[in-house]
Amino acid sequence: MQPSTKLGLAATLVLICTSTMAEDEHSGRAPVATEASTQHKQHDHAQAQAGSPGAAVGQGKWQGREWTNYPLLTPMMDRNGDRATAKFAAQNIRPAKLEVFAPGGPADRLHRQFPASAEGTRIEAVTPKIGNYHWVSAREESASKVTVASTAYFFGNPGEAPTRLLLEQKNELEIIPQPLPREHGAWRESEKWPFLLRFNGQPLAKKVVRMETEFGTKTSFISDEKGMVTVLFPRDFKPAEEKPGEGGHDHGPRRAKFVLAVVHDDGGKRFLTAFNYTYSADAARGKNLSAGIGFGLLGMLLATPLLRRRKANNHNGAKEA
């Protein structure tokens, strides 16, 4: 086989296989997109994060189960295709409003407030065309206690990176991701990620941060002298359950909710702050490395004839220089 033929064959293989796959659909089975290949299928991050209040994100029997008593802000599936708005449900907290902090944009819109609603509070990106991460928080305050729920929300439009946004002080007691996952990334099972604890803008050392996940893990971590907490995301994903009639709409890698919470007493007041978001299944779950290496080696094998020298009287068009 001539090298040029092989090059053509490799390309043709790609086309044949993809067209075959186009026919191989609607089998009634939910296509489980690969973690690898679907990191950026989560481009529609609202869909990735959203769920109904108190519910897990598509985790079968876990759905609807109350998994934490800490305050949560959960995005809801109700944006009507508008990439610049989102709707949030507040759980275990009764705020009067949601506060939204933007990473950039017009100065008068960087910090906005939206009156809370029992049916879900609709928030907006700083402007319709500016996206990226926005910080969302809710606050409930009494004479003796301040409770804060916080989360981040990715509006699917270009926008400033959230470095400054994260470090901006928004409440007295804060749990700050350092950093948030990038647009096509995620916190994943078995990974360690740093978070910063602050009180009134100052690092909070030797403080216990509790973590709960919707799969039932309850654990804790302690901040170091600089207020940094290294959070190990537990490997606790349960097997997915397929739902009849919902095949073909499983969009992106599996995600689950988690919450980090910290309590701090100061000046006779108790401060409770929680940060909730999602983490995803380990990239290695449901994957076969050996098969991957095997196909890589197959490709190498197919190319090895190219490394042989040919006789001079080659008439097939591919010419040894």
Binding site: L13, G292, A303
Partner: peptide, 16 residues
């Protein structure tokens, strides 16, 4: 299948 094509192609390209 897509992953298998990618890996085969990557292996082929590397040697080719």
């Amino acid at each position: 299948t897509l992953g298998a094509i990618a890996n085969t192609l990557a292996g082929f390209i590397l040697i080719a």
